[in-house]
Each structure stands twice: as C-alpha cells, then as structure tokens.
Computed example of a mutant assay.
Amino acid sequence: MSASASASSLPSSSSPSIILTNPTPLERTRTWLYNQTEWGNSLTVADYLEREEYLLSIPLARNGGITNWILTDDAATPQNGERPVLAACETLRKRALVRNQDGSVHDVWAYGVASVFTLKEFRGRGYAGKMMELLRGYMAAQQRETGEPAFSVLFSDIGRLFYAKHGWLPLENTQIEFRVRSDAELDTSSVTLIHEEHLAELAERDELLVRKEMAKPNAVDASKTRVAVIPDLDALQWHFYREAFICNAAFGRKPTVHGALYTSPSTGSRVWGLFERNHYGGPEQPEKNLISFLRFVVEDESISDDELSTAVVGIFRAAEKEAKDWSCSKVEIWNPLERVRKAAEAATEFETTFVVRQDKNLASLNWFGEGATEDVDWVVNERFEWC
C-alpha cells in the first residue's frame, strides 16, 4: 500500500488484521524515508538514511538494544515484498533501577520509546493510538513473563494527552535556559573541559551516586516506588555518536568537548555537566540550535553554596563558549536540582529563565509494576534519557 492509497482502501484501526510487528530491512528504510521529511532538519535524505543505519551499530543499539516496530495490515498483499507501514516506532533497551516499597533496590531494564510516526496521508485514522496500545500490551505481557521491562519512558512532542491515554504519563518537566551572548568574554579557567577519555570514569562514578540516591526513600513519601534509568556510558554515547554524525554532516567537523567539570580546591569533590549540541537549523539557522545538558552532577551534597555557585558559573560559561563555536543560540538544562537552579538564577550574567514544559519534550513514564504510574518517583529525570 503506497502513500497515495485512497482513504477507502485503508483498513480500520480496529480491524483484527492490524498487527504490531518488526519490519524487514526494506520496510525499515521506508519508515525512515517517511519521517525524514519532518525530522531530517539539516541533513540531506542520504545523510539521514546513513545516520539511522549508523545508529543501529553503536553500543546501546547492539545485540538487541534497539527494536524497530511497524503497525501493518496482515491481510494486505505485499507490494514488491513490502507490507503497508501504517505507523512506526522503535524501542531502546536501557539499564535501570527500581527501589520497591520494601526498600530493596533491583537492577532492571527499561524501554525508551522513540520515533513514533504516521505518514500524513494515514493520520486521523487511529493508527498511532493502536500501535501504542499494542506496544504497551506487548511490554506489559513481557514484564509479567520475564520481568522486562520494569517501566518505559518516552518524550512527547504532541502535548500531554495522547500518550497519557496509553499509560505514558508526563512527570516533572521543567528546565532553566538562557540565551547565548554574542559579546561575552568567557573565562572558563575554573573548570576542566570533559573529553572522550574522561567519560568512562565519570559515568562509572555517576552510577555509584545514582545507586546511593536510589537506596534512600522518597523524602516526602517513603512508601513511593522509585525508578531511575542509569546514566551509563552506553546511554551517554548514544547522544554523542548521534551528535558527532550530525555535526560532521553539517559543519565538516566533530565536537571534542562533551562538558565541563569543577573540582573543589578544598575537598576535591566535583561538580560536572555533560552536554550535547542539537542542530535543528544547521549552520544557516542558528536560532534553532541549542546546547542541552544531558546530565548535571553534584558529587558531594555538602558542597558550600559559594563553591556550587562557582561551579555552576564555570560550567555554564563552558557550555556557552561551545554554543558560540557551534552556532547555537540557547543553553538548557532539564529538571535541575533546586540548589543548581538557585545558583543559576543568582548568576545574573546568564539571565536564566525557568520554564515548565507543556507541549514539547514531555518526559513521560509507563510503570508496569504494582501501583499507579502517578505515584512513582522518577529519579534523575534528565536529558540523557531522551531518545
């Protein structure tokens, strides 16, 4: 069934022949061709297809780490060996933790849902909703049988309602942001720039910190179940490999700076932020490009306010300096710690704005265990989980 098929020839989304399944390589490429028109941004069609193929080969995606899905009509006659693609998405398998109500912490798997798409000609017929219904049913059945996934996350760009109907509820969606100053003299001497060779050690340390946090009960309600996706090296590198491909295609070079780190001269404790460049406009439209912090870590909670302020200013300056070098007009950090937010707001040079996201990038969670998703405490809900 081609994109030009008449509406009368399309099956109902309630038809028993509508199934969720895995695409063939040809069908998968066709889904990429469909969504390239909306998500290609600064990439050519050829570059976009190459990027999608490349992302299947990086560590997070290997060995079943990524699964492609299509909604199709099992009763339709394949054309040139391909079935109709009524809707499509993909799931990414990520290491995660769950703290149960009895206080025990378990290593689990979580599935990130990404690239949910329906071709324009097929919209308005309930296909995407049917796909999400079947996908949730598949995950819930898998969880009952094998314990995997314990939960699922996705990031909605179409508001709060659609995915919530299928169990993915938006939980905590705030950010601080600031515009990049074209005339700022940026002194970054207080921080060390983070390069590729630093990532493994920082990710390992961060995982220990997350596990330490997960061992604690929720500060307000000790009975809450707590969940966290682990910010391990594979999860971080998924962003950096993707970023490198896009930057190389658009600018002919790859980033080498992945963040900035402050080390206390008095205690040796560290504060660091990891960030990526998101080029939605390419070199020609810098107003659409931004630097997004993937993760912001305060290693020692007892750090003084003065030192934390010094750390935040230095790290933000490093991000702004990279933003200027890579034609980005804005810097953002999702769901910042309260102390980090206060330090950022006190640093008046940045003129930060606090935003509650209502429509875009809504971090949403679907919990498959006992209890309601609304009652789950999502720990370290930050940009590194986006997919």
Rank of each mutant, 00 (worst) to 15 (best):
L10S: 11
G268D: 12
D187G: 15
V116K: 03
I66Y: 12
D102N: 07
E197A: 13
L186R: 13
L274C: 14
L171I: 12
W168P: 03
S9D: 13
P78K: 11
Q143G: 15
N35W: 09
E370C: 09
L337Q: 15
A372R: 09
E90I: 14
L20G: 12
E90V: 14
A150G: 13
V108H: 04
P255R: 14
N361W: 01
F251H: 09
V376F: 01
V257E: 06
L134S: 15
P84R: 07
R317V: 04
K324V: 12
S327G: 10
R123N: 04
T263H: 08
K216M: 10
G81M: 11
N22G: 07
E332N: 06
L161K: 15
R62G: 11
R339I: 00
T146S: 15
D377F: 02
S8T: 00
A96F: 02
A347S: 15
W109I: 00
Q237H: 09
L20N: 06
D183G: 06
E301L: 03
S292W: 00
F245D: 13
R341I: 08
L236V: 04
L86T: 10
R357A: 14
M131W: 07
F316G: 02
F275A: 12
D377N: 06
W109R: 12
M139T: 02
H258Q: 14
A96Q: 03
L169I: 06
T118F: 04
S4C: 13
A200W: 02
W334A: 06
E299P: 00
V313C: 08
G40A: 13
W378S: 05
Y280P: 04
V98Q: 11
A235G: 11
E385K: 11
T72M: 04
R99F: 05
L33I: 08
S156Y: 02
T348Y: 06
A343M: 05
R339H: 02
I66G: 10
L55T: 02
K130W: 01
L135Q: 07
G126H: 04
S2Q: 15
